[in-house]
Computed example of a mutant assay.
Amino acid sequence: MTTVGILGGGQLARMLALAGAPLGLRFLAMDTSADACAGQFVPMVVGDWRDEAALAEFASRVDVATFDFENVPAESAEWLAARIPVFPAPRALRIAQDRLAEKTLFNELGIGTPAFAAVDTRAGLDEAVARIGLPCILKTRRLGYDGKGQFRLKTPADLDAAWVALGPQAPKVGLILEAFVPFEREVSVVAVRGRDGEFRAWPLTENWHRDGILSASMAPCADGAALEPQAVAYARKVAEALDYVGVFALELFVRDGQLLANEMAPRVHNSGHWTIEGAETSQFENHLRAVLGLPLGSTAAVGHSVMLNWIGAMPEAAPVLRSPAGHWHDYGKSSREGRKVGHATLRADDRATLRGELETAVDALSRREEFSGVISRLG
Rank of each mutant, 00 (worst) to 15 (best):
Met1Tyr: 08
Thr3Val: 15
Val4Gly: 10
Val4Pro: 12
Gly5Ile: 02
Gly5Gln: 10
Gly8Trp: 10
Gly10Met: 05
Leu12Lys: 11
Leu12Pro: 13
Arg14Lys: 12
Ala17Arg: 14
Gly24Thr: 11
Leu28Pro: 04
Ala29Trp: 05
Asp31Glu: 11
Thr32Trp: 11
Thr32Gly: 13
Ser33Arg: 15
Ala36Gln: 05
Val42Asn: 04
Val45Thr: 06
Val46Thr: 06
Gly47Cys: 09
Gly47His: 13
Asp48Pro: 09
Val62Ile: 13
Asp63Ser: 07
Thr66Leu: 03
Phe69Lys: 06
Glu75Phe: 00
Ala77Phe: 09
Ala77Val: 03
Ala81Gly: 11
Arg83Cys: 13
Ala89Phe: 07
Ala89Arg: 15
Pro90Ile: 07
Arg91Tyr: 13
Ala92Ile: 08
Leu93Met: 14
Ile95Glu: 08
Asp98Phe: 07
Thr104Leu: 06
Asn107Asp: 11
Gly110Asp: 05
Gly110Gln: 07
Ile111Phe: 01
Gly112Cys: 12
Ala118Cys: 10
Val119Tyr: 05
Ala130Trp: 01
Arg131Thr: 13
Leu138Phe: 02
Leu138Thr: 08
Thr140Ile: 01
Arg142Leu: 05
Lys148Gly: 01
Gly149Phe: 11
Gln150Thr: 04
Ala165Pro: 11
Val173His: 15
Leu175Ile: 04
Glu178Tyr: 10
Val187Lys: 09
Ser188Asp: 12
Ala191Trp: 00
Arg193Gln: 14
Gly194Pro: 15
Gly197Met: 01
Phe199Ala: 04
Ala201Met: 03
Asn207Gly: 07
Trp208Ser: 14
Trp208Asn: 13
Gly212Ile: 03
Ala216His: 03
Ala219Asn: 01
Ala219Met: 01
Ala222Ser: 13
Gly224Ala: 02
Glu228Arg: 15
Glu228Phe: 10
Val232Arg: 15
Val232Ile: 09
Ala235Leu: 05
Ala235His: 11
Arg236Thr: 03
Arg236Gln: 12
Val238Phe: 09
Phe248Pro: 15
Phe248His: 07
Arg255Glu: 15
Asp256Met: 08
Ala261Ser: 05
Asn262Tyr: 00
Arg267Phe: 00
Ser271Ala: 07
Gly278Gln: 01
Ala279Asp: 05
Leu288Val: 08
Val291Phe: 04
Gly293Met: 14
Gly293Ser: 06
Thr299Ile: 10
Thr299Gln: 04
Ala300Ser: 05
Gly303Val: 00
His304Leu: 00
His304Ala: 03
Ser305Gln: 02
Val306Tyr: 00
Met307Cys: 04
Ala313Cys: 08
Met314Val: 03
Met314Glu: 12
Ala318Asp: 12
Pro319Trp: 03
Leu321Cys: 02
Leu321Trp: 02
Pro324Lys: 01
Pro324Trp: 03
Gly326Cys: 04
Tyr331Thr: 11
Gly332Lys: 08
Lys333Trp: 06
Ser334Ala: 15
Gly342Cys: 09
His343Glu: 13
Asp349Asn: 09
Arg351Ala: 05
Ala352Met: 05
Asp363Glu: 14
Phe371Thr: 02
Val374Glu: 00
Val374His: 05
Ser376Val: 08
Leu378Tyr: 00
Leu378Lys: 00
Gly379Met: 02
Gly379Val: 01
